[in-house]
Design a protein around this nucleic acid. Sequence first.
DNA 1: CTGTTAGCGCTTTCAA
DNA 2: TTGAAAGCGCTAACAG
Lengths: 337, 337
Amino acid sequence: MAATIKDIRAETGLGLATISKYLNGGNVRNENRQKIEEAIKKLDYHPNVTARSLVTKRTRTIGFVVNNIASNFSGVLLQHASAYLHERGYGMMICDSSLSERQEEENIRFCVEKQVDGILMVSSAVDPGFLAPAVKAGIPAVLLDREIKSDAFDCVTIDNSNASERATDYLLGCGHRRIAVIHSEEYTGNERFMGYLASMKKAGVSVPDKYVCSAHIHSTELGYKSMMKLLKLKDRPTAVLTTNYEVSLGVIMALNEQGIGCPEDVSLIGFDELILPMVMRPKLTLVAQPMEEIASEGARILLKRIEEGNSFPPQRVSLYAALKEGESVRRIDVLKN
Amino acid sequence: MAATIKDIRAETGLGLATISKYLNGGNVRNENRQKIEEAIKKLDYHPNVTARSLVTKRTRTIGFVVNNIASNFSGVLLQHASAYLHERGYGMMICDSSLSERQEEENIRFCVEKQVDGILMVSSAVDPGFLAPAVKAGIPAVLLDREIKSDAFDCVTIDNSNASERATDYLLGCGHRRIAVIHSEEYTGNERFMGYLASMKKAGVSVPDKYVCSAHIHSTELGYKSMMKLLKLKDRPTAVLTTNYEVSLGVIMALNEQGIGCPEDVSLIGFDELILPMVMRPKLTLVAQPMEEIASEGARILLKRIEEGNSFPPQRVSLYAALKEGESVRRIDVLKN
DNA sequence: CTGTTAGCGCTTTCAA
DNA sequence: TTGAAAGCGCTAACAG
């Protein structure tokens, strides 16, 4: 049997409260401190966190609910978030939604059931309803990367619309006019689509329907199928903007399969600076989201929210994402167009 | 305040024991069962898992300690393991070791501290010492994908040596003789290296030192640097076997950077059928590990071990990994060689 | 600063 | 089947 605080009492002759106080960083007479420390070492005592949680009503565990853990994007986010939280004594309970909104709701419930202190979430859903169980249980949630239709929650994203607009500006600046976009109807996908539209409008370039591909959720499949469709067009686009990492993967699969050269035949801009863009040839031109900052800033806000409750208003952090030039965009002669 | 079992008692007039029994699936008179169910619904009662854990000494949480969560390989493993565990009411606490053995040890300690019921682990370390805290606390661990130097633990891997041997056989069968290998000194990397050696020996082909690249730990960097070195050789290899996913990525980066064609200039075989090998051109020929089976089989054994303790001997499951042909290996004329 | 005491919400004997 | 009572190991008043 593992040693308990009572064993420490037997060993030191001190009261439980004194020992507990020591364990929680309180002031204890130096002499007693030493006694306790010796006993702890001798008995190899480790506080029972379950018993502690029962009293404090804190589990020191954060739920991480993520749309798709199999994505490299999630892995990197997870890496940074868990590093931040572990350092502060928090564990992270992972819940994968596998691109299913039903599962997403289920995961929130699971977290509530498991009594996490807070939830970090990358959501597919846009309607905040799925967070109701957490709200009811008084468990705060911070949204990472994806917003939802509610300003009641803290969230950390990039300025999606603006970043996407800059990316489209870039394509236009390289002389492209027939620019297609592949996006999802998730919040992020939609914002990025809006940025694309804004840029095109600003430039006075019309956007035929056939250049707009979308689906409910971002996925490799969306990218693949959309690109295949775009390639079949008579006046196929000279450039494509993909609004998500997985979508880019799908697009590249289609291009490779069809033997279409990039950027000779089709130019490409994607989102997210992960491993693929570094491994691909040509190097992908992309919008680089600050992954570590998204994760740590989100975790920071969540812990603060846990500590301080609703004493401060919902935080809506929007970070800057830079466009990084690779070699996947071709400059074409505007006059020839 | 959330409802407790006492509120249910007040509502139903029944004893605590009866209610507890109901909650745990025991036999309760039909009439009482209904009363309880009504009260639960009315009060929106959820059992306090912390209190339950304090008594049962089970947290229903599994620690997942992984060498590198940022890797797509880990993400996929995580996806399958978490699906399996969630279905059975278990949560998963994620601990990333970031390729650091020190961190790996730290993570085991963290899991013990958090009182997980069991540990699922993808380790970098080979010496079982780091598991000591878990052993001492009576917390079982199952090793996934990577073995360690101890047969006291359950583990689920593929037959690394054999798979690697078959891959090398394939290269030899395609006419290659100058075959390099890039591996780590981790258990898996070493096993795969052994398979390579066995194949080469069997074929009577000598292995010059310069064709063997290795480092302590598998990484993209290892792949990149090794390939750069191999490319500088006068009699550079016509084929390369990489013993891990990240290593393959690094190799491909080097090839792209140097403008070396695959498979025209260098043929390549890697491990792990993840998204990138499918997106790349050419499609990588690879040894496909059965990811889902590794994860779910590992989780299954772990839960069984938690339930049944040491009533059965350590399980050492070795799954079959098939070689999948892509287009990254060139057939060369043996006579010309 | 220290110790006594009363719970946290649940499971689990044990007797009825 | 049911219920009373005794903890699980800890924290947090409170009084000293």
